[in-house]
């Protein structure tokens, strides 16, 4: 069985390449609060699949380009 899964994201980088899109702007386009975008960006909140797809849609990329995962801890 795999160890713990750490979900990582490239939102900061994608915002930069989207003409330095603000967190507020991304929040409005994804239909969430700025607080939620801050939490996702800093890894404090894992979004639902629905929200993850909506964020990817805002940037016009595939979900795998926004979110990725790392396996931490020991494999059993």
């Amino acid at each position: 069985m795999a160890g713990n899964i750490q979900i990582t994201n490239n939102i900061r980088k994608l915002r930069f390449f989207a003409d330095e899109m603000t967190q507020q702007s991304l929040a409005e386009k994804a239909g969430v609060s700025r607080q939620t975008i801050i939490a996702i960006e800093s890894g404090k909140y894992n979004p639902s699949l629905d929200l993850a797809f909506r964020i990817a849609l805002v940037f016009g990329v595939k979900i795998g380009e926004v979110f990725d995962y790392e396996i931490t801890g020991e494999n059993k």
Binding site: E28, R34, T36, S48, L51
Partner: peptide, 10 residues
Amino acid sequence: AANMVEDEMD
């Protein structure tokens, strides 16, 4: 309205 959005995290 933008500040008061209650989303999935809330």
